[in-house]
Lab assay of single mutants.
Amino acid sequence: NQASVVANQLIPINTALTLVAMRSEVVTPVGIPAEDIPRLVSMQVNRAVPLGTTLMPDMVKGYA
């Protein structure tokens, strides 16, 4: 099972992602792969992401 990126805190809309804001977890459905965490740092989310939410490619500006 592949680990996905999960919000480690509430991430407000247009907030730049940080290492502290993300964690890796095996979840269903699978979201952005955990190995992409370094690439996600400083990218912005295009919606509010609640704690525990799996990050999907369409939630991160410039990711997809």
Rank of each mutant, 00 (worst) to 15 (best):
N1Q: 13
N1C: 10
N1G: 14
N1Y: 14
N1W: 14
N1M: 15
N1V: 15
Q2H: 12
Q2Y: 14
Q2G: 13
Q2F: 13
Q2D: 08
Q2I: 12
A3N: 08
A3M: 11
A3Y: 12
A3G: 09
A3K: 10
A3Q: 09
S4H: 02
S4K: 00
S4E: 01
S4I: 03
S4L: 00
S4Q: 01
S4T: 03
S4A: 03
V5L: 02
V5E: 02
V5K: 02
V5I: 11
V5W: 00
V5A: 08
V5H: 00
V6G: 01
V6E: 02
V6F: 03
V6I: 10
V6R: 01
A7N: 03
A7M: 06
A7I: 06
A7D: 00
N8P: 02
N8E: 05
N8S: 13
N8H: 06
N8T: 13
N8L: 03
Q9E: 11
Q9C: 07
Q9D: 09
Q9G: 05
Q9N: 08
Q9Y: 10
Q9M: 14
Q9T: 10
Q9F: 14
L10N: 15
L10W: 12
L10D: 15
L10S: 13
L10K: 10
L10H: 14
L10A: 13
L10Q: 11
L10T: 11
L10C: 10
I11E: 01
I11C: 03
I11F: 01
I11L: 09
I11Q: 02
I11P: 01
I11H: 03
I11N: 00
P12M: 08
P12Y: 06
P12H: 09
P12V: 06
P12W: 05
P12R: 09
P12N: 09
P12G: 07
P12D: 10
I13E: 15
I13W: 08
I13S: 12
I13K: 15
N14P: 00
N14R: 07
N14A: 07
N14F: 10
N14L: 08
N14G: 13
T15Y: 12
T15N: 08
T15E: 11
T15A: 13
T15C: 09
T15F: 13
A16C: 09
A16F: 15
A16P: 12
A16E: 14
A16T: 11
A16K: 14
L17C: 04
L17N: 01
L17S: 03
L17T: 02
L17H: 02
L17I: 10
T18M: 07
T18G: 05
T18K: 09
T18W: 05
T18P: 03
T18L: 06
T18Q: 08
L19W: 12
L19Y: 11
L19C: 07
L19I: 09
L19K: 09
L19Q: 07
L19H: 07
V20R: 15
V20C: 08
V20W: 14
A21G: 08
A21V: 13
A21E: 04
A21S: 15
A21L: 14
M22Q: 00
M22H: 01
M22C: 04
M22S: 02
M22V: 06
M22R: 00
M22G: 01
R23S: 07
R23N: 06
R23E: 04
R23P: 02
R23L: 05
S24G: 12
S24Q: 10
S24R: 12
S24K: 11
S24M: 08
E25N: 07
E25W: 08
E25V: 09
E25Q: 12
E25Y: 07
E25D: 10
E25H: 08
V26E: 09
V26H: 14
V26R: 10
V26M: 11
V26F: 11
V26D: 07
V26Y: 13
V26W: 12
V26T: 10
V27K: 07
V27E: 01
V27T: 11
V27W: 03
V27R: 14
V27D: 02
V27N: 03
V27F: 02
V27G: 01
V27S: 04
V27Y: 03
V27L: 03
T28M: 13
T28Q: 13
T28K: 10
T28N: 13
P29K: 04
P29M: 04
P29Y: 03
P29V: 05
P29I: 06
P29N: 03
P29T: 04
P29G: 02
P29L: 05
P29H: 04
V30Q: 12
V30F: 12
V30I: 13
V30H: 14
G31Y: 05
G31T: 02
G31D: 00
G31E: 01
G31N: 01
G31L: 02
G31R: 01
I32P: 01
I32Y: 01
I32A: 00
I32K: 02
I32T: 01
I32D: 00
P33K: 07
P33W: 07
P33D: 05
P33G: 04
P33F: 08
P33I: 06
A34F: 05
A34G: 08
A34Q: 05
A34R: 04
A34E: 08
A34T: 05
E35Y: 12
E35S: 14
D36F: 14
D36I: 07
D36E: 15
D36Y: 13
D36W: 11
I37L: 11
I37S: 01
I37H: 00
I37T: 05
I37D: 02
I37F: 02
I37A: 05
P38R: 10
P38I: 09
P38G: 11
P38L: 12
P38M: 11
P38N: 11
R39S: 10
R39Q: 10
R39K: 14
L40Y: 02
L40V: 04
L40I: 11
L40K: 04
L40W: 02
L40D: 04
L40M: 04
L40A: 01
L40F: 00
L40Q: 01
V41N: 04
V41G: 02
V41F: 03
S42F: 08
S42R: 10
S42K: 11
S42I: 04
M43N: 04
M43L: 15
M43T: 03
M43I: 04
M43A: 06
M43W: 06
M43F: 09
M43K: 09
Q44L: 15
Q44V: 15
Q44S: 12
Q44T: 14
Q44E: 11
Q44M: 14
Q44F: 15
Q44P: 07
V45R: 00
V45C: 05
V45M: 00
V45P: 03
V45H: 01
V45F: 00
N46I: 12
N46C: 07
N46W: 08
N46V: 13
N46K: 10
N46T: 14
R47S: 06
R47K: 09
R47Y: 07
R47E: 09
R47Q: 14
R47W: 06
R47D: 05
A48P: 11
A48F: 10
A48K: 12
A48V: 14
A48H: 14
A48E: 15
A48R: 14
A48D: 15
V49I: 15
V49C: 06
V49A: 03
V49N: 04
V49G: 03
V49R: 01
P50D: 12
P50T: 11
P50S: 11
P50V: 08
L51S: 14
L51I: 15
L51P: 15
L51D: 12
L51E: 15
G52K: 00
G52A: 04
G52P: 02
G52C: 04
G52M: 04
G52V: 01
G52T: 01
G52F: 04
T53E: 11
T53R: 10
T53S: 14
T53D: 09
T53I: 08
T53Q: 10
T53H: 11
T53F: 10
T53L: 09
T54I: 08
T54C: 05
L55N: 03
L55I: 14
L55G: 02
L55M: 08
L55K: 00
L55H: 01
M56Q: 13
M56Y: 07
M56I: 07
M56G: 04
P57F: 06
P57I: 05
P57E: 06
P57D: 05
P57S: 07
P57N: 04
P57R: 08
P57G: 07
D58W: 15
D58V: 08
D58Q: 12
D58N: 12
D58Y: 15
D58M: 11
D58F: 15
M59D: 10
M59E: 02
M59P: 01
M59R: 00
V60H: 02
V60C: 04
V60G: 02
V60K: 01
V60Y: 01
V60F: 03
V60W: 00
V60L: 08
V60S: 02
K61M: 14
K61W: 12
K61T: 14
K61Q: 12
K61I: 15
K61S: 10
G62F: 08
G62T: 05
G62R: 06
G62A: 08
G62P: 04
G62M: 08
Y63H: 03
Y63K: 00
Y63D: 03
Y63M: 04
Y63G: 02
Y63I: 02
Y63P: 03
A64S: 15
A64D: 14
A64V: 15
A64C: 11
A64H: 14
A64E: 12
A64L: 15
